[in-house]
Each structure stands twice: as structure tokens, then as C-alpha cells.
Amino acid sequence: MAIARRCGLGGLLVVLGIVPLMAAEEADEASASQWDGAAELGFIMNRGNTDSDSLNAQLRVENSHRKWRHRGEAKVLRISEEDTTTAESYEVSGRSEYLLDDNDYLFGTLRYESDEFAGYDQRTTEVLGYGHQFLKKENMHLKGEFGAGGRQTEFVDGTDDNESIVRVGLDYKWQISKTSSFSEVVFVEHGSNNTYTESVTALTAKINNSLAMKVSYTIKNNSDPQAGFETTDTRTAVTLVYDF
């Protein structure tokens, strides 16, 4: 009986020792994984001599876990007149990064678009590449990327195009003050039939801990657009941003 009690006491001590270790490991796992996100909404409604609506919405979700960084985004732009949609664009994208060290990383991106403004019904782009952090200060960051992949496009006239591409990009962020920030993201995807360039310049001012106002200017350029479409689209947007 004494032996049984000693064994039972020993087992209890082992369990009491394991439980805190398991709890500590779970806490470390939880602290290593961080979530972040933001939702943006801009809406313009005109009534009277002009009857038109414009909707600009975006959603971004990010997760960081040890050496991995993941991001998912969804964007919608729709313009309608007289209760009839005249043009719209949708974009859904996913991105993963694997950190090699403090300044270098590998990345993969997948983007799906439907953009009537640019003349294509749908476009899918896949890229794998390498990125480097050129500037890393307390209030300023600059990184550049180089990669290669493929692009498949179906145009609104029924034709399609598949091509290999090379991608280069720059991502700059400047925290001007505690309540305001500036960012510039630009990338070029070059293929044998078309070169696509996108630049997004944004200035954000915080209203409180969760809400902010954002003014952005977007330039999208296709070097060889479909007949009847311009090479360049520009968009100026004022949106309300909710961070979560």
C-alpha cells in the first residue's frame, strides 16, 4: 500500500510538473502567432442632375508566425449610373513570405482579378521570388523584390493570353508621426505580350486607435491594352479605415 501511495504521489508530481510546461509551450505558440487586419470603405452617391454611385471597399488580413508572414486581400470597385452597373473590378490575392534572416526572405503571390476598366474579364497571376530589406529604421522601411511566374488573361472580347512574367517591386513605408503615415507600393510585371505596372501612393491619418482616414492615388498601366481601352487608369480615393 505504501508503495502504491509513493507511486501515486510520484505520478502526481510528474503531472504537476508537465502541466506548467505544456501551458508555457502553448503560451509561446500563442505569442509567436500574431494577427492583424484592416477594412476600408469609400462610397459616393450623387442625386439630382446626376444619378450615380461609386463604391470602393478593401479587406486585408495578416498573420505572422515565427519565420512565416501571410497576407490575404480583397478589393472591390464598382460604379453605377441610373441603377445600372457601368463598370466594376474585383481583386483577390494571397501572399506568403519565409524569412531567411532579418533582411532577406522568399515570397510567393497569387492574384485573381476581374477588371472591366482595363478590358479583361479575368486575370490570374502567380509569382515566386526573393525579397530584401534595404532600409529598416524605427519609422521608415524600404524593401525590394524580384521574382518570376506566369499570367493568364481572358479579355472581354473573348480572346485570351498566357505568358511567363518577371516581376520587380518596391515597398516603402514612413511613419511620419504617431497619427500619420505615408506609403508607396509599386511593382512591374513584364511579359512578352504586355507589361503591367501598378503604383499605389497613400497618406493615412488616425482618428483614434481603431479608425483612420486614408487618401490614396492608384496608377495602373497595361502597355498593350485591348482595342478601345486606354493604357493607363488612375484612381483617387478617400476611404475610412478600421483596424482590427
Rank of each mutant, 00 (worst) to 15 (best):
M1V: 12
A2V: 09
R6I: 11
L9R: 13
G17C: 08
V19K: 05
M22I: 09
A24E: 15
E25M: 10
E26V: 10
D28Y: 04
D28V: 08
S33F: 11
D36R: 13
G37F: 02
A39T: 11
E40N: 12
L41T: 06
G42E: 08
M45Y: 14
M45K: 15
G48D: 11
G48C: 09
L55R: 01
A57Q: 09
A57P: 03
N63H: 13
G72Y: 03
R78K: 14
R78N: 11
S80V: 02
E81P: 00
E82Y: 11
D83M: 04
A87L: 06
E88M: 04
S89I: 01
Y90K: 05
Y90R: 07
Y90L: 14
E91W: 01
S96Q: 09
E97L: 09
L100H: 02
D101K: 08
D102T: 10
D102H: 10
N103H: 08
T109N: 11
Y112K: 03
Y112D: 02
E113P: 00
D115N: 15
D115A: 07
Y120W: 13
T124S: 13
E126P: 00
G129S: 02
Q133T: 10
F134G: 04
K136T: 12
K136G: 13
E138W: 01
N139I: 00
L142K: 01
K143E: 15
E145P: 03
G147T: 04
G149R: 04
G150L: 12
Q152Y: 13
D157L: 12
D157Q: 12
D160C: 00
N162W: 02
S164G: 15
V168P: 01
W174M: 10
S177E: 08
T179F: 06
F182Q: 03
F182N: 01
S183T: 11
E184I: 09
F187R: 05
V188R: 07
E189T: 02
S192F: 00
T195G: 02
E198T: 07
T201S: 14
T201N: 12
T201E: 05
L203R: 00
T204A: 12
N209I: 00
L211E: 04
A212Y: 02
V215G: 10
T218D: 09
I219W: 02
K220T: 06
K220R: 14
K220Y: 01
S223H: 09
P225F: 07
A227N: 09
A227P: 04
F229H: 05
T231N: 12
T232R: 12
D233R: 05
V238K: 08
V238W: 09
T239R: 10
Y242E: 07
D243W: 01
